[in-house]
Simulated assay, not measured.
Amino acid sequence: MTRLGQIKPEFVEFIPENLAPGVLYISKRYSTASHLCCCGCGLEVVTPLNPAKWRLIESDGAISLSPSVGSWSFPCRSHYWISGNRVQWAAVMSAERIAAVKSRDRRDVEAMAPQPQGFFARMVGAIATKIGRWFGR
């Protein structure tokens, strides 16, 4: 496997079924970017573009993704930054550190999720509380 040092942005409406190595496909319409893992393993990396996940920055035809891309569920466990169309490799992270990052990411997503409001949400909350009391005995 050959690690990439650069990646080329390609703006598309739909992410293609077959991805080319070294290309970051960006769908602004669907707020998603996808690419093949930069380590060369050939697995697809999907980066949802939203405040709780990744942010895409465009500057003078170059793109950057923030935060880093951690392919920790892949066998390669690659970890890198995409900055100014360049792939900057990060140090390997321990299993404990990866678990902490994943936990923080889950909290960030939960904090961004809209909270239910109104009569229906209050009823669901009341029912859940009642059920919890029944099974808590």
Results as ranks from 00 to 15, higher is better:
42 G>I: 01
111 A>H: 10
102 K>W: 09
113 A>H: 09
82 I>H: 00
67 P>M: 05
88 Q>A: 15
35 H>W: 10
33 A>P: 07
59 S>V: 01
26 I>S: 01
120 F>Y: 04
90 A>L: 10
2 T>V: 05
75 P>W: 03
58 E>D: 09
28 K>A: 15
130 K>N: 07
106 R>V: 08
66 S>Y: 13
30 Y>V: 08
33 A>K: 02
30 Y>D: 14
93 M>V: 04
25 Y>M: 01
130 K>Y: 13
125 G>L: 10
105 D>K: 07
13 E>V: 15
65 L>T: 02
20 A>S: 11
137 R>D: 09
25 Y>W: 05
104 R>M: 05
22 G>P: 04
26 I>F: 01
52 A>C: 10
49 L>C: 13
47 T>V: 08
15 I>T: 04
23 V>H: 02
41 C>P: 04
69 V>H: 11
16 P>F: 14
35 H>E: 04
71 S>K: 00
69 V>S: 01
136 G>T: 06
87 V>D: 00
69 V>A: 00
77 R>P: 01
23 V>W: 05
101 V>K: 03
128 A>Q: 14
21 P>G: 00
119 F>Y: 05
1 M>P: 05
3 R>H: 14
8 K>T: 12
31 S>A: 13
113 A>K: 15
20 A>M: 11
97 R>G: 01
57 I>W: 08
64 S>T: 07
44 E>W: 05
17 E>D: 14
66 S>A: 09
115 Q>V: 15
39 C>Y: 05
20 A>E: 11
8 K>G: 01
33 A>D: 02
4 L>K: 03
77 R>Q: 08
7 I>G: 06
94 S>T: 15
106 R>T: 12
69 V>N: 05
5 G>Q: 12
38 C>P: 02
18 N>Q: 13
33 A>F: 00
31 S>Y: 09
99 A>T: 01
126 A>F: 15
37 C>V: 00
27 S>T: 11
99 A>R: 12
130 K>I: 05
105 D>Y: 07
116 P>Y: 03
12 V>N: 05
62 A>E: 15
93 M>C: 00
54 W>A: 03
90 A>T: 11
1 M>L: 04
127 I>M: 11
113 A>V: 01
11 F>E: 15
23 V>A: 00
16 P>T: 06
79 H>S: 04
84 G>V: 03
131 I>C: 09
82 I>E: 10
12 V>K: 06
29 R>E: 15
106 R>W: 08
89 W>I: 04
81 W>V: 04
124 V>H: 00
46 V>R: 13
109 V>T: 12
70 G>C: 02
49 L>F: 08
93 M>H: 08
80 Y>T: 06
107 R>I: 07
115 Q>F: 06
11 F>V: 12
75 P>K: 04
126 A>L: 13
131 I>V: 15
110 E>N: 07
109 V>W: 09
86 R>W: 02
130 K>D: 11
45 V>Y: 02
17 E>W: 00
113 A>I: 15
16 P>V: 07
14 F>D: 10
114 P>N: 12
67 P>R: 00
73 S>Q: 08
112 M>P: 03
